[in-house]
């Protein structure tokens, strides 16, 4: 009875030790994975510089060689939106006349985010029908990476603008247009590489994407207006009933 109990006890302790070891091993593994992930994340963040300077190679490897991560893409998108807001708030009033008293930060960010996502979606929807190689994830990632010059140039320029007088505004405006042109170039090259298209086809599909996006917008607006009509029908039905009951 007692032997059995002791055996039972040792088995119990053994399993406890084992459990501990397992736990430790799992923790170590987790940590390792975390470190690896972090390494990959920072590497993919850093990779954006390569994409900027070598867009043809950069975008190909970004998607087809798994050099980019979604986390980095999200980071760039958030930075892009923040840059836009900071630009509105902090640029010297000599260069930008944003009515700060009326600005809603989230509205401002939404007004950039929504078209961005809709354009990505439209592009995916169109190219997937015409043997584009990119999945939605690839397109989204590529476009986020293409926004990096905007952040890298406009964010410093926002602060530099406070050190300029209006006569020196040409420097500011040239840098701004430079960043936008760079971004557009990256978008073009990015789509070309992601879908493995030629430049002509990419150009055509840029236009098609805009058309597609407007169709999506139209459908969304129709859907929401119908929805609100339906909702208001039930609301008025309820009101009418209450009115009659009284």
């Amino acid at each position: 009875m007692s032997a059995a109990r002791s055996a039972n006890k040792t088995a119990e302790t053994l399993t406890k030790q084992e459990l501990e070891a397992q736990k430790r091993a799992r923790r170590a593994e987790l940590k390792e994975r975390h470190v690896a992930w972090r390494k990959k994340y920072f590497a993919s963040l850093k990779y954006s510089f390569y994409v900027m300077s070598h867009p043809f190679d950069g975008f190909w490897d970004l998607v087809h060689e798994q050099r980019g991560t979604l986390a980095a893409a999200h980071t760039f998108l958030i930075l892009f939106l923040l840059t836009r807001v900071i630009k509105l708030m902090c640029t010297s009033f000599q260069f930008i006349s944003a009515p700060i008293q009326y600005i809603n930060v989230f509205e401002e960010m939404g007004s950039l985010l929504l078209p961005f996502l809709i354009l990505c979606l439209a592009n995916w929807a169109m190219t997937t029908l015409f043997d584009g190689k990119g999945r939605f994830k690839d397109i989204y990632m590529g476009m986020c990476y293409a926004m990096v010059p905007y952040v890298l140039i406009q964010l410093p320029m926002t602060f530099i603008s406070n050190m300029l007088s209006v006569d020196e505004g040409s420097l500011y405006s040239v840098m701004l247009s430079f960043s936008v042109i760079w971004c557009l170039f990256l978008v073009f090259v990015g789509l070309m590489e992601i879908h493995d298209y030629g430049p002509g086809k990419t150009f055509i599909f840029l236009i098609v994407t805009v058309v597609g996006a407007s169709v999506i917008l139209f459908l969304m607006l129709t859907f929401f207006s119908l929805l609100s009509d339906a909702a208001s029908y039930f609301v008025s039905l309820y009101r009418e009933t209450i009115f009659r009951l009284n």
Binding site: F93, Q94, S97, M163, S165, V166, D167
Partner: peptide, 14 residues
């Protein structure tokens, strides 16, 4: 919101 005069003053200040 006088940009021109602000620029003038800012240049001197700088």
């Amino acid at each position: 919101h006088d940009v021109d005069n602000y620029g003038r003053a800012y240049k001197l200040y700088r």
